[in-house]
Amino acid sequence: MEHVKPLRADGQRNRERIVAAAAELVGRDGAQVSLEEIARRAGVGSATLHRHFPSRQALLEAVFRDGVAQLCARAAAQPGEDSSAELAAWLEELTVYTATHRGLAAALLTGPDGLSAEEICCTDMLLDVLNVLVARASAVGAIHARATAEDLMMLANAIAVANEGDPRAARRVLRLALTGIRP
């Protein structure tokens, strides 16, 4: 991994203002909000925004990373006693979270393009957790042997995209889908 120079204080403030403005505007208008509008709201120029975030995907990753990290931490804290229930509960939490955070599910479906080496990708964090949960559930025969973490991620995100802004419907549809993955 290459060495990354830490940001100066003013650069760090600009980055934080960009992420805060993006979070507000993405929450209001969705992930396709104008990058120019985000820069204006943050009080920076377009070049400054692009210096910090080379792509829309990289900016969305930064906006959603904290919430996704919290989801991942909750999964890691599970006791591992009922792997099927833990997998289902965590997928439900992920689906509801992404359905209520406009643009996140679509961003996660597109992959980590545009991220710099020092950034941790939300998609990778989620897949790391899902791989553990799927392995546990598979080991006890609690899910179909061909179900993969990637499949379940795609399922959860597709349901969240289809039910964006309606977490109750997202939860209901995921529960229906999950009854189909159990043997």
Rank of each mutant, 00 (worst) to 15 (best):
M125S: 11
D124H: 12
E118I: 08
E150A: 14
A106D: 12
V140P: 04
M154K: 10
H101V: 03
G141W: 02
S138E: 14
R136T: 02
A105G: 06
L152N: 04
V132E: 15
T148A: 03
M153D: 08
D124L: 11
L108V: 03
G111Q: 05
L133G: 00
A145G: 07
G141M: 03
D128Y: 05
T148V: 05
A139G: 15
A149V: 00
G141I: 04
M154T: 13
D113L: 11
T110G: 05
T123S: 09
R102H: 14
I143A: 07
I120T: 15
L104P: 01
A106K: 13
M154D: 09
L109N: 05
A105V: 05
V132M: 11
V132Y: 07
L126N: 04
A139W: 06
D151A: 10
E150P: 05
A135C: 04
D113C: 09
R146H: 09
C122Y: 04
M154S: 11
D113Q: 15
M153E: 07
L115F: 01
A107L: 03
G111E: 06
E150V: 10
D113A: 13
A145F: 06
E119Y: 05
A107M: 09
L115R: 01
C122G: 13
V132A: 14
E119S: 15
L108K: 08
M125Q: 13
A149Y: 00
L126I: 12
L133W: 01
A117T: 05
L104A: 14
S116K: 13
R146N: 10
D128M: 08
A137E: 07
V140M: 06
H144T: 11
A142T: 03
D124C: 13
A142D: 08
S138Y: 05
D151T: 08
R102W: 12
M153K: 12
D113N: 13
L126R: 02
A139S: 12
A149E: 00
G103E: 01
S116A: 12
P112M: 00
E119W: 02
P112Y: 00
C122R: 05
A107Q: 09
A142H: 01
A117W: 02
C121G: 15
H101C: 04
R136W: 06
A105F: 07
A135M: 04
D128S: 15
G111D: 04
E118H: 13
S116H: 12
L152I: 04
I120D: 15
T148W: 06
R102K: 15
C122F: 02
R136H: 09
C121N: 14
L108F: 05
A106I: 10
E118V: 09
M125H: 05
C121T: 11
A135R: 07
C122L: 03
C121S: 15
A105K: 03
E118Y: 07
P112E: 10
E150W: 08
A105M: 06
R146P: 00
A106W: 10
L126A: 06
V134P: 05
A147F: 10
A137D: 00
V134F: 00
H144M: 08
P112F: 00
H144G: 10
L127F: 03
